[in-house]
Each structure stands twice: as C-alpha cells, then as structure tokens.
C-alpha cells in the first residue's frame, strides 16, 4: 500500500481529539476501508483483555462487540479520527511485535494485560491518551450488548425502553 499520509495518534479520555507523539504510517485508503483482519483481531484481543467473560456473560471478543466496534469506527468517528484510531490499533499490534516478538493478539491473556497496563501509565501521557481512545470505543461497543447491560442491572426509569434506545447492529449509530 502506498503511504500517502501519516496520521498522528490521537485520543482523549472520551475519544480521539488530541495529537500525541507517536506516529504510525497510515494510508489514505484507511479512511474508508473497513477494519482489516489483523485490526479486528487486535481490537478483539484488547476488548477480551478488559472483558474476558466472567463475571460478565459475554466476552469482549464476541462478534457482536467487534462488529459494534467496527460500526462505531466507520460511522461515528470522523475520517481524521478513524485514521487516528487505526494508528493506535496498529501501534498496539506492531509495538508488541517489536518488543515481545508477537503481535498483540497472539500474546496470552496475562501478557496482554501487562501491555495494557504499561500503556495506561500516566507518566507517558501520549500513550495513556491513545489507550483511552481505544478504551472509549471498546466501552461504547461492549456496553451496548443487552446481556451485559442486564448483568450490570442498567435499567432506565423514564419509561423509554432500552430496546428502543439501544441498537446493537440495528440502524445507524
């Protein structure tokens, strides 16, 4: 793929708005292309590290969660944010390949937890913020799954049903 553009990793505790120091090569095509197999594997592995299943009824790598992540990336993020998100995902993927000899999704659960903990270290602000951007998207996707919300006991009291308000894989975000 010809590299026509470099994206800056971006994030914020709620998203993807601030430039940070690490740059990962990203192509123009990445603006509109759906997540690649490796990218899906990386986000699924990250989601499963945060949510491995127990005590929740659904694991983070459940297809519904990964589909919802993809839907959010493609339909909710602006093109520049999408590039930044992919840069974060690739940095996670390739960073562990360089440091540990294996792509993030090929690491075992404990090693993945270690990596995410290192990224969460607030002393390295850009990396911490980048992780927050990934965490924000994973959280939005995971807590859309009805069984997960049921498990938490998240119920509304305003007479508007969750079914009406939430849509997993239905309609546009």
């Amino acid at each position: 793929m010809a590299i026509t553009r470099r994206a800056v990793l971006a994030a914020g505790a709620v998203g993807l708005g601030s430039g940070v120091g690490v740059a990962v090569a990203i192509g123009e095509a990445d603006v509109s292309a759906e997540l690649s197999r490796d990218e899906r594997a990386t986000v699924a592995a990250a989601a499963a590290t945060w949510f491995p299943g127990e005590p929740f009824p659904v694991s983070g790598d459940d297809q519904r969660v990964v589909d919802a992540i993809e839907q959010i990336v493609m339909e909710v993020l602006a093109p520049s944010q999408r590039l930044a998100f992919r840069a974060v995902v690739r940095a996670l993927q390739l960073g562990t390949l360089a440091a540990r000899g294996r792509a993030f999704h090929d690491l075992d659960a404990e090693a993945r937890r270690d990596v995410l903990q290192v990224w969460a270290d607030p002393s390295v602000l850009p990396r911490r913020v980048a992780l927050d951007s990934l965490k924000a998207v994973v959280g939005m996707a995971y807590f859309r799954v009805p069984e997960v919300l049921d498990h938490v006991g998240y119920r509304q009291t305003c007479g508007v049903s969750l079914g009406q308000l939430n849509s997993v894989g239905r309609g546009r975000a």
Binding site: M140, R144, L165
Partner: peptide, 10 residues
Amino acid sequence: FRQDTAFAFK
C-alpha cells in the same frame, strides 16, 4: 434521542 454514547457523540 437514544441512550447510546456513540449516537450522542456523533
């Protein structure tokens, strides 16, 4: 309105 963070953010 929908009770969905992604919908609201967008």
